[in-house]
């Protein structure tokens, strides 16, 4: 009971800490998406191209791996260990972040999509040469949201796993990654084999099947990333 209580307290404290950290991160995301949406309407003769939904999704792909590189670094973990916390809780809180942040960020892009529509309505009301089309359908929205979420989670989990290993075993991971990259560049057979493996996941799937495949890959990535975190020393 006491142990459960300690764990609960530690988890609350850790999540509070990540909440304060990610408030800044979220503000950066808001800033970027606001900037991109504004420039689309102010500086471009046409606001066509990517809507806020796609802009938000692409930003997730860029920002979340950077965030994962930060939270798995030794200096960041040292900060978290200033208060009682164990490695399971750290890994669990990271996984919660990986699952939660894309959801919040994608939902935020939904708000911006509505704001874009609102801006379009305003522009339409004030000028006779502005037009817009609402291309989202219920099916494509749900499928797009779900698949974007699962792909972002998978990519974020991959970067989390990579950096969790990298900061603990810099030399080994650098050598393995370097060799892998060189093999991809110089050995066409290896490259083709690798691309066909990736293709098996992405080519001609249905949204459900793709989500299932990526969900499984994500679980494997979580398990792989957990290993170095569980074994790490706080230095």
């Amino acid at each position: 009971m006491l142990s459960q209580n300690s764990r609960l307290r530690a988890m609350k404290s850790l999540l509070y800490s990540y909440y304060t950290d990610f408030t800044t991160f979220y503000c950066i995301y808001l800033g970027i998406i606001t900037g991109l949406c504004l420039t689309k309407f102010i500086f471009s003769s046409s606001a066509s191209g990517s809507s806020a939904l796609t802009v938000g999704m692409v930003n997730c792909f860029i920002l979340l791996p950077i965030a994962m590189a930060a939270i798995t670094s030794n200096s960041e973990l040292l900060k978290k260990f200033s208060f009682p916390v164990d490695r399971d809780l750290v890994a669990l809180s990271h996984i919660m972040l990986i699952l939660l942040l894309p959801l919040i960020m994608l939902l935020t892009s939904c708000i911006f999509y509505l704001l874009e529509i609102l801006a379009s309505e305003l522009l339409m009301a004030t000028s006779d040469n502005f037009f817009y089309s609402w291309l989202v359908t219920r099916g494509s929205f749900l499928a797009g949201f779900a698949v974007s979420y699962i792909v972002i989670v998978a990519v974020t989990a991959l970067s989390w796993m990579f950096f969790a290993w990298f900061y603990r075993y810099k030399v080994i991971v650098s050598v393995v990654t370097g060799t892998f990259a060189l093999a991809l560049i110089y050995f066409s057979e290896f490259r083709e084999a690798f691309l066909s493996l990736v293709g098996k996941v992405f080519v001609n799937p249905s949204p459900g099947l793709l989500s299932l495949k990526l969900g499984t890959i994500t679980l494997v990535l979580f398990a792989l990333g957990y290993i170095p975190i569980k074994r790490m020393e706080v230095k």
């Binding site: 046409s46 606001a47 939904l53 692409v58 522009l123 817009y132 089309s133 974007s148 799937p205």
Partner: peptide, 15 residues
């Protein structure tokens, strides 16, 4: 002329 196209998530292009 100005035109806004409210597209859905670009990832649906996979299907």
């Amino acid at each position: 002329v100005g035109n806004y196209i409210g597209e859905t998530f670009g990832i649906v292009g996979l299907f």
